[in-house]
Amino acid sequence: MALFKAEKKAPKGPAGRWDVVIGEDMCKACGFCLSVCPVDVFAYRKAPNKIGWFPMYTAHEENCIGCMLCYQICPDFCIDVSVKSTAVATV
């Protein structure tokens, strides 16, 4: 059993209802969020941020299933995941 999952699954259930916001300027590119995410949401930027790292960004927000693992594991307080305001309206 491993902490990180190399293979991403296809999103099931309540995907697409989440806002995934990354503070890219404070990201130190540890890669924890990308590795812990069970689906395919994150990707590295190709240009460095102002503190010199190639930060993570939300590449596929629509895949997010709201498991909050990235929020829990981010060591630099960068990531916030919240219910999309439009989604709230439909629930």
Partner: peptide, 26 residues
């Protein structure tokens, strides 16, 4: 910055001086 960091921490001190992947922030 996540919502709790906004609520409780000092924006001027974030990002911290921690190395990348350091568990202190977690």
């Amino acid at each position: 910055m996540n919502r709790l960091a906004k609520k409780y921490l000092r924006p001027s001190q974030i990002p911290t001086k921690a190395c990348h992947g350091c568990g202190i922030g977690m």
